[in-house]
């Protein structure tokens, strides 16, 4: 399986990619904070920030089609929650406000994740003195997500090649059993990883 579908362009070369991680993360957070704090009638700001974001995307050399598709994939979550706001007085205004605000925030994060590999974010977390246990767990987790996804895909294929029914109840049971299997395998793998860590002098 290709594992770069999420942050496919995070490792390409561009002036944006070369910026320091700390700068990019702080910039993104400040931008999101401003977006949240500003009232809706500050149209100027929203237009300005959108132009800025588009500018950054162009400099980053990430295909616009890819960025937009990521935005569209994630937009339903935003829509789903914001619909709740329609059912109250002046709901339409709140609805539009939220939609604009969260789309800007979402696009900011998409840009951030696609210009900064996750391993760089991990390095940055170490630099800003996030407890080492937390960063270690996060790093191990990030590393093994992809291994476990591959594991799960292999199990799913093995199952599909042997079963012919697509009964919903069956699928539920099989998927749940699969989760159990993945857990058992992860625990066994954790043991082997521990051996490998010790073999290279860990504790």
């Amino acid at each position: 399986m290709r594992h770069d579908f999420i942050d496919r362009y995070s490792r390409i070369e561009s002036p944006v990619h070369q910026l320091s991680t700390g700068f990019k993360v702080s910039a993104a957070i400040i931008l999101i904070l401003c977006t949240i704090l500003l009232p809706i009638h500050s149209y100027g700001y929203f237009i300005l920030i959108s132009i800025c974001l588009i500018g950054v995307s162009i400099i980053s050399r990430i295909p616009a089609k890819y960025l937009l598709s990521r935005l569209i994939i994630l937009e339903p979550f935003v829509l789903g929650v914001s619909i709740l706001s329609l059912f109250q007085p002046k709901g339409e205004i709140i609805f539009v406000t939220i939609l604009v605000k969260s789309s800007i925030c979402l696009y900011t994060i998409i840009l951030l994740t696609n210009t900064t590999p996750f391993s760089k974010i991990l390095d940055w977390l170490k630099v800003i003195h996030i407890p080492s246990l937390f960063v270690t767990i996060l790093a191990l987790m990030y590393r093994y997500i992809f291994v476990l996804i591959d594991d799960a895909e292999r199990m799913e294929r093995a199952r599909a090649s042997r079963s012919f029914s697509t009964n919903k109840r069956q699928i539920w049971k099989i998927r749940a059993m699969m989760i159990g299997q993945i857990f058992i395998r992860s625990i066994e793998r954790a043991d082997r990883i521990y051996s490998a860590m010790r073999a290279r002098g860990w504790k």
Partner: peptide, 19 residues
């Protein structure tokens, strides 16, 4: 541990760091 280098069967078990 330092004198004896051990290469395990499954590289995924041994490569436990993000980079």
């Amino acid at each position: 541990h330092q004198m004896v280098g051990l290469l395990f069967q499954n590289p995924d078990d041994q490569l436990f760091c993000p980079t």
